Structures are given as C-alpha cells and as structure tokens.
Computed example of a mutant assay.
Amino acid sequence: MSIFILIIVLGGGLIVIVLYNLGSLSFVERTRDYATLRVLGTHRNEIRNLTLIENLMTTFVGWIIGIPAGIWFLGQYVSIFSTINLEYTRYFDWKTIVISSVFVWICSLSTTLFISRRVKRIDMVQALKGVE
C-alpha cells in the first residue's frame, strides 16, 4: 500500500510542477503580446482574464486526454505486477476520478493566480524592445 501512496503523492507533485511550468512558459512566451496589449490600452484585469482563459483551456485539454490515458496506464501498471500466482485487476472508482479532477482544477486555478500577478511587473520597454 505504501507504493501506491508514494505514487499518489508523486503524481500530485507532478501535477503542481507541470501546471506551473506550463503557465509560466506560456506567460513568458506571450510577455511581448501582453505588453503590446497594455500599450494599446488594455486593462490589467483584461490581460489577467486572458491568461486565466488560456491556462484553463490548456488544463481542460490535458484533463480530457489525461483521464482515459490514466485509466489505460493503470491497466498497464497493474498487469506488470501480476504473476502466475497472484493476479491484480484494474480498479478505479469514479469518486477517485472526481477527487483527482478537483485537485487538478484547484492547482490550475492557483497557479494561474500566481502567474497573473506577473502582469503588474511587465516592463513595457524591455518587452517591446527588438531582439538584437
């Protein structure tokens, strides 16, 4: 049972790290676009909403793909540990899927809030400066 708890904890940590890195990378790649929008008169809240929508869409696509992929991975993982004397079967409960989905969405929203704070600190001159 301790192996399964370790996998759950490492999976939760992986969720946090991947979502934060995806959001941060997206923000860094789009900094010039956000600076251009700010120069054109877009308010900070509108840019924050834009980052929120982008990150939530990314999370939604990953969530939709991740559930069937996770169920498939569980089947593969369990079949590896099955032996002639002892056979494990794939078992998942929809309650567990709902709990993990809620955890993913909470992590996505929290990382989006952390990343959207960076909108205030965009240096317009540096972001719009040409690449030399």
Results as ranks from 00 to 15, higher is better:
8 I>C: 05
121 R>L: 11
107 C>R: 00
70 G>C: 10
36 T>P: 01
73 F>W: 12
77 Y>T: 12
72 W>Y: 14
66 G>P: 04
18 V>C: 05
130 G>I: 13
130 G>P: 10
69 A>F: 14
118 R>A: 04
32 R>W: 00
37 L>W: 02
69 A>V: 15
91 Y>T: 15
108 S>E: 00
67 I>F: 09
118 R>L: 05
48 R>L: 05
117 R>Y: 03
6 L>V: 11
62 G>D: 06
21 N>H: 13
118 R>S: 11
81 F>S: 06
43 H>D: 15
91 Y>F: 15
59 T>A: 15
131 V>T: 14
74 L>A: 15
14 L>T: 13
72 W>R: 02
65 I>V: 15
97 I>R: 04
60 F>Q: 05
70 G>K: 08
74 L>M: 13
120 K>P: 01
53 I>S: 09
103 F>E: 01
90 R>T: 15
24 S>I: 04
85 N>F: 10
46 E>M: 08
86 L>N: 08
72 W>L: 14
74 L>E: 13
98 V>M: 08
11 G>H: 06
49 N>W: 03
71 I>Y: 10
55 N>L: 04
60 F>N: 04
61 V>W: 06
14 L>K: 07
55 N>H: 09
75 G>F: 02
41 G>S: 07
11 G>D: 08
92 F>R: 05
7 I>N: 03
66 G>M: 05
33 D>L: 09
120 K>W: 10
1 M>L: 12
76 Q>F: 10
19 L>S: 12
47 I>R: 04
21 N>T: 15
126 Q>I: 11
70 G>I: 09
123 D>G: 08
119 V>Y: 05
19 L>F: 09
10 L>K: 06
87 E>N: 07
35 A>M: 01
65 I>P: 06
4 F>L: 13
101 S>R: 05
75 G>Q: 11
28 V>C: 00
62 G>M: 10
22 L>Q: 12
68 P>R: 10
17 I>G: 06
104 V>I: 13
102 V>E: 01
44 R>M: 04
99 I>R: 00
57 M>T: 14
107 C>T: 14
73 F>I: 15
29 E>L: 05
116 S>A: 11
87 E>I: 11
123 D>W: 07
35 A>R: 01
84 I>H: 06
58 T>G: 05
103 F>T: 06
119 V>C: 03
50 L>A: 13
129 K>D: 12
26 S>Q: 09
42 T>N: 08
20 Y>M: 07
69 A>L: 15
67 I>D: 08
107 C>E: 01
76 Q>C: 04
18 V>M: 12
105 W>E: 00
100 S>E: 06
53 I>H: 05
21 N>A: 14
5 I>R: 08
121 R>V: 07
15 I>W: 03
73 F>T: 15
5 I>F: 03
46 E>T: 14
99 I>H: 00
13 G>S: 09
84 I>V: 11
66 G>E: 06
67 I>G: 07
108 S>G: 10
125 V>N: 11
130 G>W: 10
